[in-house]
């Protein structure tokens, strides 16, 4: 009987260095995920953890899984996360005031207890066979070995999982689909709407940004014939974000005109 935590699988050299370098970083990144305000930052920290794990997989003779981890998780899944984040507002950030009384304290206490017990359990665990390593099963390459397992012993599970994947894709389509309740505004409708407004000031359309000014960028307001900047020429989104360049800066100097 050998203790799992103490006696088996001593590795030294590069792997140990790698581990002691990456593991604390992963833990810090995980903790960071909990405390950063913006979801985007959390996503980046998660991506970092995933890459670290991919490296650990490779270090543990799981080359195929390591590559898949990078491609699928860090590539596809994280992209999906970010894509959704873009969709629902990239700058959405949590307020950290807890609304459910006592939840956070209980959660952290319970989690520390859980983690502590788990760690001590691992420390206590024993194993009754000598460790053999994966050298022999990986003799034809890790991908080959894994493929042999997948397509022989686990072929049924594999097929079931593929069905699951298709079902999930279909389900996502059904969920994300929304029925349009009215036809979208076409140019004709927009035009009619403009002429039906209270005054005809904007009947010919809003002024384009930057055209009559020194710049022709979208964040620069147009100058009206009077020489004043036209705020309506800039997208409301840019204005709300504060990405608009101060329009007065481009305003023709009244004093100069007077001179």
């Amino acid at each position: 009987m050998i203790n799992l935590a103490l006696d088996i699988g001593k590795t030294a050299g590069p792997e140990a260095v790698l581990f002691y370098f990456l593991a604390p970083l992963s833990v810090f990144a995980g903790l960071g995920m909990l405390i950063v305000k913006k979801a985007v930052h959390s996503a980046l920290l998660l991506a970092w953890i995933m890459v670290s794990l991919a490296i650990f997989y490779i270090a543990q003779d799981a080359l195929f899984l390591g590559i898949v981890q990078v491609v699928v998780y860090t590539g596809a899944v994280m992209m999906l996360f970010l894509f959704i984040l873009m969709l629902v507002g990239v700058d959405t950030s949590d307020s950290f005031t807890e609304t459910i009384r006592g939840l956070r304290a209980i959660a952290i206490t319970a989690a520390i207890g859980f983690g502590g017990l788990l760690v001590t359990l691992i420390g206590r665990a024993t194993f009754n066979r000598p460790i053999t390593g994966l050298a022999s099963v990986n003799s034809n390459g890790n991908a080959n070995g894994l493929a042999k397992e997948l397509f022989t012993q686990y072929v049924f599970a594999f097929e079931v999982v593929s069905a699951l994947l298709i079902t999930a894709a279909l389900g996502a389509m059904v969920l994300a689909h929304s029925q349009k309740t009215r036809s979208p505004f076409a140019q004709r409708d927009l035009s009619i709407a403009r002429f039906r407004k209270d005054n005809l000031k904007d009947a010919a359309g809003l002024p384009s940004s930057g055209v009559y000014a020194l710049h022709n960028a979208v964040d620069v307001p147009a100058l009206l014939p009077t020489g004043k900047a036209a705020p309506t020429s800039i997208s409301a989104v840019l204005e709300a974000r504060g990405d608009m360049i101060e329009s007065s800066k481009f305003q023709l100097q009244q004093e100069e005109e007077e001179k």
Binding site: G9, V27, M33, A39, I49, T92, R104, A111, G115, L118
Partner: peptide, 28 residues
Amino acid sequence: MAIANYLYLSAILFTIGAVGVVIRRNAI
């Protein structure tokens, strides 16, 4: 270095994830 260190890391990351599920409110 003991291989079990990977397991410790796994346990710690799991716990951190669990805490995150409870205390964060942003669904993503």
